[in-house]
Every structure is written in C-alpha cells, then in structure tokens.
Write a protein that binds this DNA or RNA. Structure first.
Lengths: 239, 239
DNA sequence: CGACACCTTGAAGAGGTTCAAGAAATGTGG
DNA sequence: CCACATTTCTTGAACCTCTTCAAGGTGTCG
C-alpha cells in the first residue's frame, strides 16, 4: 500500500487558495496536510450532516454543491445557504457540539473531512491557520448580514437579482462563466432561501426574461444585462 | 497610583460567566486579565464603531444596549441585531480588517475593549479561550440562521412574538423579569430588524394588547401570556 | 413509456405597505 | 420650570405586492 497514493494533501490541492491560508512555509504546509482526515463522497440528495447530529468536523467542499437548511418541528423550513467548491460548511455545530441544520448535496459531491479538534490543535501552532479559521467564521457572519438585508428590505425582483449576481460571481471566481450558470437547486429551494414562494420565483424569472435581462431555460440561466440586475439591487430609489 | 484600583480584571467581573470561558486555572485566569486593554464609555446615540472603520478589537458589553446595523449607499438600512450586557460585538470586522456595520449605543454604555491580536495570542496558549472564541462566533452564526428563518418564513405576528420572547429570555438570563421589559429601541428599529414597517409593528403590538397577550405602555412591555406567544411562533399550522 | 418531480401561468385573496393625520412623550432653550 | 419643537407612536383608508389555489405543461428517470 503506497501512502503517497492515498494520502490526502492540501499542499497540492488546486482548491487550496480557496479554503486554506496562503503564503505558508514548507513546514507549516506539512502541518496543514494533517488537517484532513479523510475525504467523503456524498451522493446527490443525501445529507452530509443533519440537525441534532454530533459535531466533530468541518468540511471543505471539493466538488459538488450543497444547501444548508433549517427544518423546525412545526414544519417551517428555511434554506440558509448554498455552498460550492472551496467553501467550508459545518460552522454551526461548534457552539453546542451538535449540528443545528441539515447539509444536503444538490449534486454528487466530495468533501474533505477536517476534525475540529485537529483544527484547533494545529491552529495553536500555525498562526496563519488560526487567523484563517477566524476569517472564515467572520466571513460567514458578514454573508448572513447580507442575507438579512436582502430578506428584510428587498422586494422579490431585487432578491432574485441579488441572488443571481451572487451565484454567478462566486462561480466566476472558480473559473466559470461570468454570464452563464446552471442552477443546482429547484425554484422552491431558491424561494425558501429568498423568503419567497416558488411561484413568485418563477414569475420573477419570467419577468426578467420579458425585460430581456436574462435568458432562462429550466435551470440554465444566461445573464444578458448584468448592469440591469445590478441597478435593481442597488437602486431602490425607483419605487 | 494604585494599579489595583485601575486595573481592569475579568477575573473578578460579575459578567465573566457570560463573556468568558469557565473553569480556568488560576494561571489561565491571570492570562485572561491581559485581554482587556481598556474600557470605553459610549454615549447614547453615538457609535462604538462604524462601517468602513479599521477593525482592531472585539468588544464585550459591560453595561448598556446596542444595535448593529447595515446602511447601504442606496439608502437601504437593516438592523442586524440588538446586543446587551455580556455579549460580544465586532466579529464582522475580522474577515477584512474593517467593520462592515455600525454599532450604535441605544443607551449610555460601557464596553471592554479586547484587541484582537491579543485575543489570538492568548488563545494560542489558553485552550479554553480558543474554544470560547470559536463558540462565540459559531453562536452568532446560529443566531443569524434563526433570524433568516424568522425573516424568510414568519408573518408579522409571529416575528414580533419571537422577538419579544427572545428579548425577555435574554434579559431573564441576566437577572431581570421573565415577563416585563423596557424596549431600548424605537418601533422603527424593531421593524427594521424584523423586516416590517414601523406601522406594522405598532399595529401588531395593538393586536397583542387587544388579545390580552401583552400590556404595552410606550416602551414598557409586560408579557401576560407567554405560552400564547410561544404558540404563535411554533404553530404555523393555523393558517 | 409512464410516473413523478418540477416549472409556468392565471385569478382571487390576504397581509403588509404607503400616505396621512393626530396624539403622546421627550428633549431643549429661554 | 414651563413652552415649544421634535421625535415617536397610533390609527385609518387605499393600495400593492406577494401568496394561495388551481390547472396544465415540461422534463427526467427508472
């Protein structure tokens, strides 16, 4: 058995710059390679973790696409985010040693499993990792502030425009098109995330198409007028 | 000059159990006392930090009451949270070394200033602090998930009920009444937080009063029927 | 190829917003 | 300490956005 062939190594992962700190010494890089215990495949439609489950690890998404969602006993359901390659999920579990939401793969996925006690251990030694972990958590807090702004103050069109621009921008950062994207989620999931009903999402898509801002063919979306969408998001003066 | 009299000491602060880890050795406790550089008073209506300002420190609230809010150039405004004694604010600033929201004192307040580089330094040595910092950030993430659920799936009554119950619960944890509270914020600020207009907040208060669930006299609120409010929040079956 | 999930569109209805006016509380300056 | 200005809160009426309910269409997967 050749350990080289099996060993999971952040040091030569091409997603490193997305999920790991940059500019490390050789020595620190080697320490980081101890972070990832194993990789885990998650089939489409199955969960990486669920509400109530014991928290042990954070997960770095290598491939695939996830949603995280809250489901309360009384039947409410809220998608709290969509995550793609290079992003970290599981942060919600730290506070009470158990997860408070479900992470569902929206397409076949693979994640790097990073046991949290090991993260804490190594980040005591590698300052860059410590700082990185703090920044990742802070980034999530800031992202959620943005969602609160969206849910609290935007109208349906503005929400969907903001959503599309955010998605395409993140995909672009991963080398995909600036204007075309394939939605991995249903209208209902988009609606849940945006605080809208699926019919409203559908209607708003249709409206964007009528106005020539996007082309939509099922889950294939092409953004024709980025500035137009941007104006919708920024400019709430027009109402 | 007697250092004893001036020295800020977490080790004998009565809010310690709210903002600091528990069960530390004498030695670790002493290390923790190096965390707080100074205290700072913040007059009502003034800001502790503002959007764009350089991030240097986290703040533990000793006395007083804050709101954090996002204000975008185009005039949107969103209250992202209300914070009280024992809670930590400033986490949003970590990711980009600058704050992304404003923290406004809603009454005269005093905070403990904890330089973040010192927090990172000490938490490399004191495992309990490291863990504590992680938990605080995770707790904020989970709290915001809850707000997303509220904004994304609740109706006006449900939102206000959830808001009141949350406030009174936090106050109760600080030794105040389980049923009476004084709101430190305006109807407009409540509305912004809950994604409603101030008129809707006012009307919903009136409705609760009519139904005998609460008594309201300006900012003085007395919760008469806690279970009733709880039912509103949990039970979305009734519509 | 048939069953199922997903999406679109229409029409009616509800919940929340907007606009407006007035009342109550709070703060300020003389 | 009182009078006045200002902010905050309440309530009504009309309106608008989004939801609900319903039906039909499209795509997908075993």
């Amino acid at each position: 058995m050749n350990p080289q062939a099996i060993k999971v190594a952040c040091s030569n992962c091409n997603l490193r710059e997305l999920c790991m700190p940059m500019g490390l010494s050789e020595h620190d890089l080697n320490r980081l390679d101890d972070l990832v215990a194993v990789r885990r495949k998650v089939k489409r439609g199955t969960t990486l973790f669920t509400n109530g489950e014991k928290f042990t690890s954070l997960y770095a998404i290598r491939t695939g696409f996830f949603k995280t969602c809250l489901a309360t006993e009384d039947g409410r359901d809220q998608v709290t985010g969509f995550q793609m390659a290079g992003e970290i999920i599981g942060l919600d579990g730290i506070v009470n040693d158990q997860h408070t939401c479900d992470a569902v793969a929206l397409e076949d996925a693979e994640v790097c499993v990073m046991p949290f006690d090991r993260i804490e251990e190594i980040s005591r030694e590698v300052t860059a990792l410590q700082s990185h972990v703090h920044k990742i958590m802070s980034r999530e807090i800031v992202r959620e502030h943005g969602v609160m702004l969206l849910l609290g103050s935007m109208r349906a069109e503005e929400r969907l425009a903001a959503f599309l621009l955010n998605l395409v921008q993140r995909l672009h950062a991963r080398g995909f098109s600036q204007s075309e994207l394939v939605l991995r989620m249903t209208r209902e999931e988009i609606g849940s995330y945006l605080g809208l009903k699926l019919e409203t999402v559908s209607r708003t898509f249709s409206k964007f198409v009528e106005e020539g801002m996007v082309e939509v063919k099922q889950r294939h979306v092409r953004i024709v007028d980025t500035e137009g969408l941007q104006r919708l998001v920024n400019n709430n003066a027009c109402h």
